[in-house]
Write a protein that binds this DNA or RNA. Structure first.
Lengths: 155, 155
DNA sequence: TCTATTTATGAATAAATATTCGTTATAAAT
DNA sequence: ATTTATAACGAATATTTATTCATAAATAGA
């Protein structure tokens, strides 16, 4: 059933981009997007997606993706947007990476996760990452490593 | 009403330490602990605490603290469990210290205060500290210095 | 292809949860 | 102290959400 997959994606999009307080409300939004389903199905969908109902700072009830799921969404968005990493410079055993404003932390997180072989650690500001290169690792190796998980460098 | 504060704490404790699938169930656990209240009050408490109802990997419904609240809980635990500093790596005259997320600043502060003999300065991100080692100070000396004020390294 | 099994779904309903309304207690102000 | 406002709460109920039961569609196996 191909429709279900698309519907689940639509549900994710809706609840990440707007405040939805009940299944009836969400159901309405889905209907407007052309998805025909009942509250029973929606309840099952939400369970499967691990959507949580909680309250926000304004004291309203809201549906939201479970924290882990949400992180993954955000990360995926950052990566696919394709303009995050803007430059890489070296000075001895230090690499300085410039990113779009605000993106340094999330990129540094990825580097921490995937670049342990070449870096011993990173510190991120707002648009700059200082990454300390492991001893005896060359700049070429660093670039190669970065290119693995950051498409922009392949160009 | 002093009782409410204690009750809210009890609710937090219960849902972080066990799987609770409904308010009725939670209500029962609270009664066993000596808290007398009705489902109506519990519903209000959960809203105030920003407790979320979601589903876990086993396909059950569970109540859990909202992500931010949860982080705070975890962090409090960390302090008392003595696991802030997680690793120390060196690359030439630079030491990189990894900490639990969010702890880099406070640890860097301690290092600045107590490590002037071995470091000329530090920069902290969220979970990483870059510390620049004074010339002609060995890695051994650095580790010895760190061990003075960070219990984990003594082991 | 034909049968068996799984998956998806809606209608109806059960179960769970939130709110309304009224009351009592607590605190603040004069 | 008396009034006024605020917060806490339960009983009843409205609302919301999950599940049961039945059916149809898709998938797998022979």
């Amino acid at each position: 059933m191909k429709n279900k997959t698309k519907r689940l994606t639509a549900i994710r999009e809706i609840i990440t981009s707007s405040v939805v307080g009940s299944q009836e409300e969400l159901l309405q939004l889905l209907l407007e997007k052309g998805y025909e389903l009942t509250q029973a199905t929606l309840s099952r969908d939400l369970k499967q997606l691990k959507v949580a109902k909680t309250s926000n700072a304004s004291g309203e009830y809201v549906y939201q993706l479970a924290s882990l799921e949400k992180e993954r969404e955000v990360r995926a968005t950052v990566f696919t947007s394709g303009q995050v990493l803007q430059s890489v410079d070296f000075s001895g055993n230090i690499a300085v990476l410039h990113t779009r404003p605000g993106y340094a932390s999330s990129l540094a997180y990825e580097i921490d996760e995937n670049g342990k072989d070449v870096f011993i650690g990173t510190v991120a500001g707002d648009d700059t990452i200082i990454a300390i290169i492991r001893e005896r690792v060359t700049h070429e190796e660093v670039m190669k490593n970065l290119s693995i998980f950051i498409p922009e460098l392949t160009k």
